[in-house]
Design a protein around this nucleic acid. Structure first.
Lengths: 232, 232
DNA sequence: TGAATAGTGTCTTTCAGACAATATGCC
DNA sequence: GGCATATTGTCTGAAAGACACTATTCA
């Protein structure tokens, strides 16, 4: 498409109608620690394609809506949760990932504190369920691939950031923090070395509260800042 | 939109026409080391908006084209280069990032070996130029933001991967490798410590060739594998 | 007092970082 | 011989990792 502007120069304009446009969605990987496992929230699809199969929560990006805003909206609509850690993961655009039409999806990771897990969620009459990431059912679209990419990101970032803050309740004993690391990294850590390291990072502060039980009470800690900090 | 299927169930279908769809582009950050600086390739726009301003090379994703395929195609079309390291960076979708219409862009990083820098590029009669990342001109769209995100990614990944392989020629003296790290990290490194570290990583192998000049000859090395390796 | 978990310190090894002298080739 | 760059090793301090016992509460 070309036009001539006021200075009589020929100018190429692009026009949305010159091109077929894909649909764009956001999909959200909502992770939480529960029952000693890393879990991901899935919804049962009520539409074709993949009707009746489990899938990541998500939906179309509105035409005047920012990507992150769309992710926040979907998160709220489908699960009722808000004010969580949200980070863009990656976009997936294989032309055949949706059998009916071209859909490009921007995947986000959301992390929810254990204390905030809604058992069954939301305003909608949607079937929503937590699954251990190690044993998810067959999933719609390329959502397995998205989960794998999200796990890689999470496991990588745990090593050089304080990202676990977003998975922890406001206060917690150090043993619970260690357990969170162990679940994500999928290996055991030495208690003494873990405590030494964590306390040396200067990202935690003790509260004046304790947890009691049939054993020695444990001191509760909290994160000094609940924002992402990159170490080094 | 609802239909009734063969089992008389009411089924919701989505239809692309139920929604306004954004346009989707790919933009490519092409980095190379040249003249002791990290440079990025920019093109002068020949279309509105931002006609005449410098921008990242990129263009629309075709309706049946994978995102990475689109990035490879644009890379080739606009610069003539191919067979380079390519990694998805991030998607940018602020509704006002393009003043005329909704355009979501998926940004990619491409890394080119110094030896492969095309001085002026391409089949097209496009104006294309390398700029030091430290002194880019005013850019179209949100391309400054994309460059900043790309620099963060590159500087981060240099620390825990062998990603610099993609910026190096097939063989090189260790001093050139060190210079590449220094340019990216923007600080000087100790020669002895650098060599000790690099050689201990087991990612390099010596060739039987030397570089000569008005000084002691230096041994040429090459990367054992020209694929991304994550350390640890 | 037994069960359960919290809390603590030392030693060893590894790695990062500071630091300077010799080697080689070309002119 | 003089210049330019390549190449090499030691020491120190910090951090990671292995490792085991005592402390506290509750039933």
């Amino acid at each position: 498409m070309t036009l001539t502007n006021m200075n009589s120069q020929v100018v190429k304009y692009y026009d949305p109608n010159d091109y077929d446009r894909p649909s764009v969605t956001v999909d959200i990987l909502i992770f939480a620690i529960d029952d000693g496992q890393l879990k991901v929230l899935l919804v049962k699809r009520k539409e074709a394609p993949f009707l009746g199969e489990w899938a990541l929560p998500g939906g179309f990006v509105k035409i005047n809506e920012d990507l992150e805003t769309a992710a926040i909206r979907e998160l709220k609509e489908e699960t009722g949760v808000k004010d969580v850690y949200l980070e863009q993961l990656k976009s997936f655009g294989d032309p055949s990932r949706d059998p009916r039409m071209r859909v490009i999806t921007v995947a986000y990771i959301a992390l929810i504190p254990s204390s905030a897990i809604p058992l069954q969620a939301s305003t909608d009459a949607l079937e929503v369920k937590w699954f251990a990431v190690a044993s998810t059912p067959k999933l719609a679209f390329d959502h397995h691939e998205i989960i794998d990419a999200g796990l890689d990101r999470l496991r990588g970032k745990v090593r050089y950031t304080n990202i676990v803050f977003a998975l922890m309740p406001p206060t917690f004993p150090l043993s619970q923090l260690q357990e969170t690391y162990e679940i994500i990294l999928d290996h055991q850590l030495d208690k003494r070395n873990f405590r030494k390291k964590m306390l040396s990072l200067d990202i935690l502060e003790p509260t004046d509260q304790q947890v009691t039980g049939a054993h020695r009470p444990s001191l509760l800690y909290r994160f000094k800042k609940r924002d992402l900090v990159i170490f080094d």
